[in-house]
Amino acid sequence: MHTPLLLPNPDDPRLTQPVTGIDHEGRTVEAAIIYERPLTLFLNGQEIVTMMTIGDYPEYLALGYLLNQNMLRPDDAVTSVDYDPELEVVVVRTERETDFEEKLKKKVRTSGCAQGTAFGDLMERFDQVRLPENAILKTSWLYSLMREINTLPSLYLKAGAIHGCALCEEDRVMLYMEDVGRHNAVDKIAGYMYRHGLGPEGKIFYTTGRLTSEMVIKTVQMGIPILISRSGFTAWGVELARQAGLTLIGRAKGKRFLALAGAERIVFDADPHYVPEEERRFSRKSSRAEED
């Protein structure tokens, strides 16, 4: 079986905390809850943003955030990424001098959970990206990915209140990241790709969250031509996907899915009648995830 390059660690004591409460019948129960902590990002001495995050892979989160906000160029030379867990600060330094004082004044709030924000010129590179037209998605790959993602080690299955994103290639999961906000999870993957020179060619992106404008913009900026979600769509997300030529697939559960953009990339090579329905525990959890 293919082993992903990077996965969450549900047993990491730094990510969850055991708490005691009572259930609907008044019984004392113990539950695991997700830690949420601030992480302040500096770029070359300038404070950029404070994010709320679970705290794993802060270096990848910092790099991915800067890339997706167009503060870090794909060809920039990063000289260091330093993380101080006590101060909860990560500092990214580049050879190129940067000054984003004016850019930091122009913020718009997005629909991403956990205080998601994007800068006013978030889309400054969106119209310049050209996604590969020859990319395909076989339905056999899609069904295989959904089964594999449902069985990966997951903080969500342990504690809930979290979103996940995966970078895939054909029917294999390459990376899986989780965080309190889906924008953080996608930024971690973008940061990993940048740090390790992993290109978007032949890649597929998966998210547990809604297919919003922010998710579409970030996927397009990463150069990935296919975006899949268990959840639903927003109108602007669909409009932007069609504009960019992104294949957008939502409500993907078991044998079912809905494509609202880029359907020409889909190759129907699997008979859905022979695809088993999802196990009940995943269907129930996925419906809760859409509400997070």
Rank of each mutant, 00 (worst) to 15 (best):
N9K: 08
I136C: 13
S111Y: 05
F119Y: 14
T247G: 03
Y83T: 03
E124L: 14
F42T: 06
A263I: 00
R27G: 06
Y176W: 12
I162S: 00
E277G: 11
E169G: 04
V108N: 13
E97I: 12
D76M: 10
V19F: 13
E278P: 04
L104E: 07
G181F: 05
W141H: 10
T110Q: 01
E264Q: 07
A263S: 04
R284S: 13
P13Y: 15
S213L: 15
G116N: 06
D269H: 08
K188C: 13
Q115P: 01
E279C: 07
W141D: 11
L145N: 05
G245T: 00
I34R: 15
F119R: 04
R182Y: 10
Y143R: 03
C165K: 01
R96V: 08
E279A: 11
V108H: 14
Y60W: 14
E88D: 13
M177F: 15
G21I: 03
E36Q: 13
G26R: 02
R284C: 11
V108R: 13
F119M: 02
A166H: 04
E148L: 01
E278K: 03
T94S: 03
L260M: 08
T117Q: 10
E47A: 12
E101F: 06
Y65K: 07
T151V: 04
L152V: 06
S287H: 13
V90E: 02
E59F: 06
E169M: 06
Q46R: 11
D75S: 15
M146T: 02
I54W: 01
R130C: 08
G112L: 10
Q46M: 10
T139N: 06
A161T: 05
R27M: 08
L63K: 03
P132Y: 05
Q221A: 10
M174V: 14
F257L: 02
V216S: 03
S140R: 04
G262W: 02
R195K: 11
S229I: 01
A289L: 15
V173S: 10
E201Y: 11
T219F: 08
L246D: 01
N70M: 12
E133S: 05
A159G: 06
L198N: 05
D11R: 04
Y192R: 06
L152W: 12
A31N: 14
E25A: 09
T79G: 00
V220N: 00
N150E: 12
W141R: 02
G209A: 15
H2V: 06
E239S: 15
I33E: 08
A270G: 06
A235E: 14
E239H: 09
E124D: 11
R288K: 14
E239M: 15
V267M: 07
C113I: 03
P8G: 04
I226Y: 05
R251C: 05
E201Q: 15
G120A: 13
K106Y: 09
K285E: 05
R147D: 12
E30G: 02
R27F: 11
A135S: 15
Y143C: 00
D23H: 09
M52F: 09
K107P: 02
R182P: 04
C165R: 03
F257D: 01
E264M: 02
V78L: 08
G112M: 12
G21M: 15
T247F: 00
A135W: 02
R27Y: 13
L6Q: 02
